[in-house]
Design a protein around this nucleic acid. Structure first.
Lengths: 147, 147
DNA sequence: CAAATATAGTTACCGTGGTAATATTTACAA
DNA sequence: TTGTAAATATTACCACGGTAACTATATTTG
């Protein structure tokens, strides 16, 4: 569907249209993703933290997790609070530097992830409309826009 | 800056990368926009409602405003609450159908908008890195992705 | 007409993101 | 060494988006 029809408005320029379209598309993706994740009692940000921790293959501190996330800052702590409540990750205080807190994914967390893996795939899940070249072009244009 | 460097991770496919990139870019734009708007004690969603009401050229009901927004639903009411507090819009109950509430932009609201107009432009504000063709291509790819 | 249904708008609840302020702890430098 | 600055994580506060419940009113229908 074309963006101009979905939100009832006209655009003065391709640049203006693309700004709205990016926001609209981002929103559209989030809705799809969250809808999928809700089946596992997770949200996308929570899922992303789990994936980061699995990818780390070891306990890493909160700052490192932050750096690997799209959205930074205090939310990391709060998201991890939720994951701890669900028993999907563990917090470990560092003894050497008592400011530092390490986090690791738990067995239960790994189980949940592997369950999700069976049906979830970032690109095949809902992005099957673009081929490799188109996806590359899109990414490059986004990079250029932010340059 | 290339997306892969900003968030420390690798991507399995162009499709996976583009999903993250869209979200990242959308976020990046929101930050810029909100930073700009804060000078006028407004947020982007509030600004959008003001623009919709100015564009309408008359009092319109809440539902119509909703339809013209990117994000739908109850937030419209809450956003309008804030705008009313600031005296930028007026609420008017419909006498014929007492369920309906009309909203219009106030003089003060128009003043604020015209003040913003002096320096704000959706595309020239921060989107000056893409030419018309590139912006069109980007929009078309986003449309195709959501198809 | 009366009851059921639909519509417009609002409110509640939850989860999120962002800035700034706050310990707490460590590192550094006069 | 001791006072100041920096780093780490957390918390508080505010604004947003989404689903669902709710209120009030209007419409439909039996």
């Amino acid at each position: 569907m074309e963006i101009g029809k979905e939100i009832n408005s006209r655009f003065k320029s391709p640049q203006q249209k693309v700004v709205v379209n990016i926001r609209f598309t981002s929103n559209w993706m989030s809705n799809l993703q969250n809808g999928f994740m809700s089946k596992f009692d997770l949200t996308m940000p929570q899922f992303n933290i789990l994936r980061i921790l699995r990818g780390a293959n070891q306990a890493i501190n909160v700052n490192t997790v932050k750096e690997r996330m799209i959205e930074k800052s205090p939310n990391t702590t709060r998201l991890m609070d939720k994951l701890i409540e669900k028993g999907l990750i563990n917090r470990i205080r560092c003894e050497k530097d008592r400011r530092v807190v390490y986090v690791e994914i738990s067995m239960k967390g790994l189980d949940v992830l592997s369950e999700i893996d069976k049906t979830f795939d970032d690109h095949s899940f809902f992005i099957n409309k673009l081929n490799d070249d188109e996806a590359e072009t899109l990414s490059n244009l986004l990079d250029k826009l932010r340059d």
